[in-house]
Computed example of a mutant assay.
Amino acid sequence: MPLEIRTLRLLLRRWRESDLAPFAAMGQDPEVMRYFPALLARTESDALAARADRLFDTHGYGLWALEKRSTGDFLGFTGLAPVPAFLPGPGGIEVGWRLSRASWGQGYATEAARAALDFAFGRLELEQVHAITAVINEPSRAVMERLGMTATAEFQHPKIPVGSPLRVHIRYSISRAAAAQASAAADLTG
């Protein structure tokens, strides 16, 4: 049975064949890929979707395809993945997202990431979750801060060329207790 998470407006679910074309379009959108080193060819996009979905089989969590419940539209992905071993720092699990440009500015990234954090701290019983992005990626950093995450370290991304404005990355982290506090505060205000 596929693992799904429902929020007020969103469905986080396993990937479907029908997600591949809109996901590939996202990978070719220069604005969506602005904080990544390159646009993705269709084969790269399809391979990324397959890896994202396989995480569920190998780890019991992964990068869920994100669907708008009221329309069934594919919006991108949100979920959990192991922090890549080649990155400096403590390792662990990270929460991440990538949404289509049409879905920006509507709170979907925060809503879906909060659901992923609830899964991480509830079902997986993790003590800490990280998020990583380029320092210049202000939109993602704003989501991390809305989630109650705290910036913990800057580092040079080893797979991004020296001189690239994307090379300097930042790690945010949140503990189980801080996530519960942030979630309670969001429930009161939201």
Rank of each mutant, 00 (worst) to 15 (best):
L63R: 09
L63W: 03
W64V: 00
W64K: 11
A65I: 08
K68N: 10
K68D: 15
K68M: 11
K68G: 01
K68I: 06
K68Y: 14
R69Y: 00
R69H: 10
T71H: 12
G72Q: 05
D73V: 12
L75I: 12
L75E: 04
L75Y: 02
G76W: 08
F77G: 07
F77S: 10
T78F: 03
L80I: 03
L80M: 05
L80Y: 05
L80R: 05
L80E: 06
A81C: 13
A81Q: 15
P82S: 09
V83P: 13
V83I: 15
V83H: 15
V83L: 15
V83N: 14
A85N: 11
L87I: 07
L87E: 13
G89Y: 11
P90Y: 03
P90F: 02
P90R: 14
G91S: 13
G92I: 06
G92E: 09
G92W: 09
I93M: 06
I93D: 02
I93F: 07
I93S: 05
E94I: 02
V95C: 11
V95N: 03
V95M: 04
V95W: 03
V95A: 12
W97I: 02
R98L: 08
R98F: 01
L99M: 12
L99F: 10
R101N: 01
S103L: 01
G105N: 02
G105L: 06
G105C: 03
Q106V: 00
Q106Y: 01
Q106M: 04
Y108N: 05
